[in-house]
Structures are given as structure tokens and as C-alpha cells.
């Protein structure tokens, strides 16, 4: 059996450097080879130890499960410890990752833009330079909410009572508050009449 494919980890902040080199000591005593720290391991150290987030919160940011995040974290610490104790250099590269950044909207010219460099805060529109910008994340939440509302109706086949259907709440498991009959989707009811 082949193993399950690894889920892509989301990295929102790529490192500003590509590795670390040891210094001091006798150069010829230094071991050959380097430790390869993956981007996701760098990100996990950043989130958990630099931003002081819990593993649970960090796992949501990286779009993996909490146990997976803890495994990546353990591996990252093991690699860093190896580099420090044996005096190897660290190279940050590789890993199953994708880079991500937030979208913003400008109210001045109506354009959308992203900010790949998270170090600088977005203060003005990159196109027209106006300061009236908004983060799209809040809007995405609203859109997800409105998505949950579906246009369908629950209807009673006996008395004609109707109400908006709630997703993940099957109508046939619910009773009509007027006459106590099992409800149905209105579309299905209409189809039945025909």
C-alpha cells in the first residue's frame, strides 16, 4: 500500500534569509554536510516560538491538523538541536508547502491587491496611493455566511406551511409546527404534485 500523500502546508511568511552558518572553533573540526530545515519547519518555529501561538491556533494558520503540526514542530526542534550540537550549518529549503498572502481591496480605485511581504504593513493602495483600504478577510467571512443561506424552502405537504431551509438539517426529520406532519423540500413537493 502506498502512504497517504502529504497535505500541503500553508506558509504565510517566508524567511528573510536562506540559512545559518556556524562560526568560531577550528574550521577543520567542523563536520561536513548541513541540516536542511524545511520551510514548513521554519514556519512552525515562527508561529509557536516567535509569535507564541498554541499548536491548535498554529495548525489552523498552516492548514494542517493539530497532531501533524506537533509532529512538524518536533522535527524542527530536532533538526535545530542537531545543527547546534554538531556545529552544522542550517539551510532552509524544500518541504511540502505553498506560499500565501492576504487580499486587500482599495475603495479609491476599486482594485484588489495582495501584500506578499508581510513585514511591511499595508497602508496605501499600490495603484492609486489612497489610504482607504480594507482587508478582504472580513468580507470572506461574510460571503461564507451568506453562502450558508440556501434559497430552498421547507414546506408541509398537508397544510402548506413554509419556512427557509437550514443547511445540514434535513426537512424530513422535522415536524410542521402547525399540523405535526413531516416537512419536505418545496422543490420535491412541487415535483410530486406534477
Amino acid at each position: 500500500m502506498s502512504p497517504r500523500p502529504k497535505r500541503l502546508r500553508r506558509v504565510s511568511n517566508p524567511p528573510i534569509i536562506s540559512g545559518f552558518k556556524p562560526y568560531g572553533g577550528e574550521v577543520r573540526d567542523r563536520p561536513k554536510g548541513s541540516v536542511f530545515l524545511h520551510f514548513e519547519e521554519y514556519e512552525v518555529i515562527r508561529l509557536c516560538d516567535f509569535e507564541n501561538l498554541s499548536h491548535h491556533d498554529a495548525s489552523k494558520i498552516m492548514d494542517v491538523s493539530r497532531p501533524t503540526l506537533t509532529r512538524i514542530y518536533a522535527k524542527a526542534r530536532a533538526k535545530i538541536a542537531e545543527a547546534m550540537v554538531t556545529g552544522k550549518q542550517i539551510i532552509i529549503e524544500g518541504g511540502k508547502i505553498y506560499f500565501d498572502s492576504d487580499w486587500h481591496i482599495c475603495n479609491g480605485c476599486g482594485c484588489y491587491f495582495n501584500q506578499p511581504d508581510k513585514g511591511n504593513r499595508v497602508t496605501e493602495c499600490p495603484l492609486c496611493g489612497s489610504g482607504t483600504i480594507e482587508n478582504c478577510e472580513a468580507m470572506n467571512v461574510d460571503m461564507a455566511e451568506s453562502h450558508r443561506q440556501c434559497a430552498d424552502l421547507c414546506a408541509c405537504p398537508e397544510c402548506g406551511y413554509e419556512r427557509p431551509h437550514e443547511p445540514a438539517n434535513p426537512c424530513k426529520d422535522q415536524l410542521c409546527p402547525v399540523c405535526g406532519t413531516h416537512l419536505m423540500r418545496k422543490n420535491n413537493l412541487l415535483a410530486k404534485d406534477i
Binding site: 500565501d100 491587491f113 506578499p116 511581504d117
Partner: peptide
């Protein structure tokens, strides 16, 4: 495109005019 440009640190501006 997005993940490529994010890793290259290139900013995208979507201007629908």
C-alpha cells in the same frame, strides 16, 4: 499564479477596468 508570485514576493494588483 498566486503561490508562485507569493514565493517570488511579487505583488499582484487586480484591476478590473
Amino acid at each position: 499564479i498566486k503561490s508562485l508570485l507569493d514565493s517570488l514576493r511579487i505583488q499582484m494588483v487586480v484591476y478590473k477596468e
